[in-house]
């Protein structure tokens, strides 16, 4: 094509777009870091940069060199899954020069509730307390050994470990119904809950003892026909047993 036959408009536009593309390519050349994209969508050098930071956490193996007594105790305890530095803070400088630096320890009441304060999103059975109500005024470690927190004595209430369920039930229609009406709980569940399991109801008769039409229970309890009500489903397929609702 002859140059003169190209429409006049095309020339400046081509120049502008070409410039824009060149600018983008040039900017990429200059600004995109050398090692970008080597491993993935990030700067590969960043890995080395991070690795070159000063180490602040030493890790439990290092503590074991000098504090093997504590490591051993802790390994047998409920806190076996915790690293020392979760509580003591970064302690690498202590491990390298124990006489110069000593790590702190959470000796007050503020720290432990970060993990043990009540929060409904924690898993079933995770030991939780309400810090304001649980033996207030005294440091946690007066009664609990932080390295081996076996309880001084078994809790008196299921709520010590099942706070969420207990507080749900507390405000429900079943507030007066004791946990043990529905659950058979072996004694050892209190001291070793993960090894010894409590039982859950398996059939309708558990609920029937109070709700069946002919049941021998207080009059105010609503009755249903235990044979037909709810069809072939278990009662708790429809009613949450810890907070039963019959009307929305």
């Amino acid at each position: 094509m002859k140059l003169s036959r190209i429409p006049q408009q095309v020339i400046p536009l081509t120049i502008i777009f070409a410039l824009a593309i060149v600018a983008l390519v040039a900017a990429r050349q200059m600004l995109v870091p050398e090692s970008f994209g080597k491993y993935g969508h990030y700067r590969a050098d960043a890995v080395e940069e991070v690795a070159s930071h000063d180490i602040s956490y030493a890790g439990i193996q290092v503590c074991n060199d000098c504090h093997d007594d504590i490591v051993e105790v802790k390994q047998e305890s409920y806190h076996r899954g915790l690293s020392c530095e979760v509580c003591h803070g970064p302690a690498n400088n202590h491990a390298e020069a124990p006489d110069e630096y000593t790590p702190g320890a959470p000796r007050g009441r503020g720290y432990c509730p970060l993990c043990h304060g009540y929060n409904p999103s924690r898993p079933v059975g995770f030991p939780q307390i309400l810090p304001k109500m649980h033996n207030p005024g005294k440091a946690c470690m007066t009664c609990h050994n932080p390295h081996a927190p076996t309880l001084p004595h078994a809790p008196e209430e299921c709520s010590a470990c099942h706070r969420e369920i207990a507080s749900t039930k507390m405000v429900s229609h079943h507030t007066t119904v004791d946990c043990r009406t529905c659950h058979t709980v072996p004694k050892d569940h209190w001291s070793d809950p993960r090894a010894v399991h409590a039982e859950k109801p398996t059939d309708r008769s558990t609920c029937g003892q109070c709700h069946a039409t002919g049941a021998d229970s207080p009059k105010i309890i609503p009755r249903i026909d235990i044979e037909t009500h709810g069809g072939r489903y278990l009662c708790w397929d429809c009613h949450y047993p810890h907070h039963p609702e019959a009307t929305l």
Binding site: Q8, Q9, P12, L13
Partner: peptide
């Protein structure tokens, strides 16, 4: 106008086409 100052019928036709 980016220097494209031609208003000949052809260029205007080209404008419309584009």
């Amino acid at each position: 106008s980016l220097g494209a100052t031609s208003v000949s019928p052809e260029s205007i036709k080209f404008d419309h086409k584009m």
